[in-house]
Nucleic acid binder design. Structure first.
Lengths: 377, 377
DNA sequence: GACAATAAGTTCAGCAAGTGAACAAATCAA
DNA sequence: TTGATTTGTTCACTTGCTGAACTTATTGTC
């Protein structure tokens, strides 16, 4: 177990990149004397290591950085069948990939994970020794201990202590997390939001997910439901949603919804890319669908900006294509629906991601617990 | 200056009410030994005092509570002319009230405050000695140091270091804050949100304000704009708003908007109460206006719930009347627009407040800085 | 009414994590 | 070569906390 100062140091480095002991001391409000000891301990533990030497006036400074091979983590996504598994190092780099069959029975899942682990670890014998955590991403609500799945429609679960079950079967420290929240943690720890304290990730795919970082910490909400923008009413009296309401964002602005709308309108498109192509050659129906979907997503994001004033919005998309009409409409809708004085003040980044995104996010949940810990330090 | 443990103790008591040393120690994760000293110091400082003795088995416990007369604070609202001023104690109780003329010149305001202070303090000579801070509530954006007004349309300000100016003139530690955020702090410190870590306050009056507490701390947003729900687009292609967009919440769901809509529709109502009366006797126009306004406010609050999953929504209203049709419609619109599984999960409290609310909020900003401090301890 | 049982709060020696000042180390600039 | 400069370490000392033993104030029981 790391001390609170050690964790703080790791957090600062993870936010700012490699830093010298003196700079670290200053930015943590500690003396150089204290810093010296903390750094020494972390280096001994193998978590930190000296990297570049920076020459200036006076004695050169030695930058400290996370030691990539200081710890390894496993991440598993329960969002697809087969379920992707990844092995990542302390820098979030993916070292190995595997797939395992999916099940809806927690005990079976734990068994399948235990079975698949040796193959994942086979290529890197040292990773097995330093395996420091396992993360699982799933669609549903997770408690703040990242141990129990409170509710998952997709998996048909209610109060399943999945982390404990997996931990018993594998012997590895396990944490679970909601899919969108896991992606947000991964962006904070290893991605493009490292140094941003307040931001939201919107994951655009078959569904629309969202998660907030506030004050440098994942904000889970009072019932774990923060960021569930998919079912906000975006088209009053719109189409019925499977949730029971009407006009939810999810009925218009997910890839699934776009495909369904295309089908309903008699288009033969089976992907967003195809629909974009149709629109680019002037297909009025395709253009209308993209406008409707993009306008809805943009409006929701504009609300997010007005409500929470984040420092960045990161839109991740798997199959999507944000360079075409859809992306343009989203951008325009955002700009048109935030307070004019705000417009352009909030950076919107879009990022194409591969299908590893959920497993990566899962691994970063384990990494986050190892580096920064669960507590509000 | 208080230590971090002293501040933590004060925060726990402010959240939970009077507690014994032993309970405090347990809830702060400290030993009874440490607690003993911390409590002794705070009692010596006059901030804490022993109150009730609770008898059970064993030695009775002595509850510790904030000493109301341990410190006093001044709060001023720059939202009305004349500007209300209050003197409050450490429990948030209002001890004295005054008014002072309003100005738009920061230097003049500081002078007017300095002039008005003696009269406010006249009745309580001890308060003058223990005056520990001054807070100012205003409409506009305030930086996170609660020192500079970044932007205020109402006052015509841009980057005004108001806190410093007032402090120089009066010699009192001064903090400024946005009106809605000040009210949220006052509800957290002294009101009905004491023990709630995540909540939002929606202040319904001439305009619609909102502020969030997240993780027990005021969340200001990246540019200080968190909670600015007044200009979220709630009626796409709705009426033009003075902000330049269309269909903002502010154009439908503020008291000002309701009055304007009534006037435009030819009703002679000059207050929400009158409009409610018309509606109760079956005036179709009045009913329509109240439905439109209530539906809009409810939808915005539903979005707030979906986006942030707060533990409570507190609606404060000055002139408003939430027992009538308007309140009912708001409630219904909230329920109808949150994920059905969520419905009823988020407590909505409405609270009628007097016109002191802004000045009280301002005083609580000063109290918050005294008790808990500006730092994320 | 005496006396155990119980729990609150205090005291005190000791420990862990920090500080400040002095110092050693490694470089650049003159 | 020497001085200036800045990094990082060492060391004596302070601070805030802990654990254990103790004192204190009460209830319950015989």
């Amino acid at each position: 177990m790391l001390t609170s100062s050690q964790r703080q140091l790791l957090r600062v480095i993870s936010e700012s990149g490699p830093l010298s002991r003196t700079v670290l001391a200053a930015s943590m409000g500690l003396s150089k004397a204290a810093m010296s000891g903390i750094a020494r301990d972390l280096i001994t533990l193998g978590v930190l290591h000296e990297t570049e030497t920076v020459y200036g006036q006076g004695r050169p400074s030695i930058l400290l950085d996370l030691h990539p091979e200081g710890a390894f983590f496993v991440g598993i996504s329960l969002l697809e069948d087969p379920a992707p598994m990844v092995l990542s190092d302390l820098n979030g780099k993916i070292i190995a990939r595997e797939n395992m069959p999916l099940s809806r029975d927690p005990e079976v899942i734990a068994g399948l994970i235990a079975d698949a682990l040796p193959k994942l670890l086979a290529r890197r014998p040292d990773a097995a020794d330093k395996l420091s955590g396992l993360g699982v991403a799933l669609s549903g609500f997770v408690d703040e201990k990242q141990a129990n799945c409170v509710q998952s429609t997709l998996l048909g679960w209610q109060d399943v202590p999945l982390a404990k079950i997996i931990r018993q079967k594998t012997g590895i420290e396990t944490f679970i997390e909601n899919d969108a929240k896991a992606v947000a943690v991964s962006e904070k720890l290893f991605g493009s939001a490292r140094d941003i304290q307040n931001f939201s990730v919107v994951s655009f795919g078959d569904g629309v997910g969202c998660a907030h970082f506030i004050g440098g910490k994942l904000y889970r909400g009072n019932h774990g439901g923060a960021g569930e923008i998919a079912h906000c009413t975006i088209e009053p009296n719109g189409s019925p949603c499977r949730c029971g309401k009407r006009g939810c964002l999810d009925t218009v602005a997910s890839i699934k919804a776009i495909k369904e709308m295309s089908k309903a309108e008699g288009l033969a498109c089976t992907s967003l890319t195809e629909l974009e192509e149709e629109a680019s050659v002037g297909n009025a129906v395709a253009i209308r669908i993209l406008h409707r979907a993009g306008g809805a997503l943009g409006l929701a994001i504009a609300h997010l900006i007005q409500f929470n004033d984040p420092g960045m919005i990161l839109i991740t998309h798997v199959e999507g294509n944000f360079d075409g009409l859809f992306g343009t409409v989203v951008q325009q809708a955002i700009e048109a629906n935030v307070l004019p004085r705000y417009a352009g003040q909030t950076p919107i980044r879009t990022q194409r991601v591969d299908s590893d995104i959920w497993a990566r996010g899962a691994a970063s949940i384990a990494a986050h617990n190892f580096l920064i810990g669960p507590n509000p330090n």
